[in-house]
Simulated scan of single mutants.
Amino acid sequence: MSECLIRGEGMSRSFHGGGFFRRGRSIQAVSDVSISLSRGEAVGLVGESGSGKSTIGRLMLGLMPLSGGRILFDGDDLAVLDEKRRGALRRRMQMVFQDPYSSLDPRRTVGSQVEDGLSIHGIVPRGERGARVAELLAQVGLEPHHAARTPHQFSGGQRQRVAIARALATNPDFLVADEPVSALDVSVQAQVMALLADLRSRLGLAMLFISHDLPVVRHLCDRVVVLYLGRVMEEGPVSEVLRAPHHPYTRALLSAAPSLHAESRRERVVLRGEPPSPANPPSGCVFRTRCPHAIEACAAQPPPLEPREAPGHRVACIRHDIG
């Protein structure tokens, strides 16, 4: 793998009370999370709803301010860059959203929306933009004449292809794909996954792939980071973490994931209770209130991420005896 392209170090993000929460109360959405990606590498970010996955994606793109930590892109700290340099970096970072229906403007042609990035960043001269749009649509498996259509004339899978073409228009180095296939029919999910894998390979994209679907992550990613209540429970190479998970939470997620291979099926781990509120997380290990292996010591302090046997495989759990 090549050199590190982007690294979030000790990322934290809190929100203050308002609306449904009592005034003045702080909600810790992400707590001391570090994630790095090399050029051409795909990292999967998995966890239940509310675990902080999408928040981390937005933090790493600079779409949301950090409460703590920093983001380094090509060695530059995003927080200290002036607006000109920050604008230049934005071109190199793009996002594909979960819902292709709401991420595109229904009143505009898809060609004009793919062209936006070319125009805003001045990447291609005006007279050449139509040809570049046609190239981008072809790159994602669509036809040049599709540029004249509006989003309602496409299927869900085709709309997501348009959204991917729009993200690729600025020639990004880093792509955040936030549940990009979860809103699609099962029959087209595999096609979009194959497209993302091909684009990553051909273009050398670093990709943060956010998902709750472990089989998808297994297929597409090199490494995986498992989140629970805004904290990392386990991380490492996909082949190692999904083959021999050490953390009880990772085991529970895997046991609930469908498998086509009988030898890969695991005994179902049923988690007790509901996830605690991020406004009032448990002391110590935040997973302990649902963990089948929790002991009294788990309440004392948050467990550090510690290495296991395989290189790069780290687990936040004091119960080494269940690994």
Rank of each mutant, 00 (worst) to 15 (best):
R23D: 01
G156A: 12
H261Y: 11
G323L: 13
K53H: 04
G130Q: 14
Q153N: 11
L184P: 05
A79E: 10
F174D: 00
Y101N: 08
T170R: 05
L72W: 07
L104P: 00
T289N: 03
V110S: 07
V224F: 09
H145A: 12
V270I: 15
R308P: 03
L5V: 04
A206G: 14
I35E: 00
H293M: 03
S26I: 13
C317D: 01
D74T: 08
G44L: 05
V133N: 03
P292W: 05
E48H: 10
L45C: 06
G312S: 10
G273C: 03
D82E: 02
R161Y: 07
R251T: 01
D74L: 11
L72G: 05
K84W: 00
I318K: 00
P275F: 00
S51H: 06
I35M: 04
S211E: 07
E274C: 02
V315S: 09
L305W: 01
R218K: 10
I164Q: 03
C285P: 02
L242F: 15
S49F: 00
G10S: 13
I210C: 08
G117C: 10
V238G: 02
V162K: 10
H121S: 07
P258T: 12
G24E: 04
Q301L: 12
V286E: 05
L137F: 08
G57M: 10
S283F: 01
G18W: 13
D198L: 10
V133D: 03
Q189W: 09
V224L: 08
R290H: 08
G50H: 12
A42R: 02
Y228W: 01
L203T: 09
A299L: 04
A279N: 06
G18N: 06
L227V: 09
S201L: 12
L118F: 12
R85Q: 13
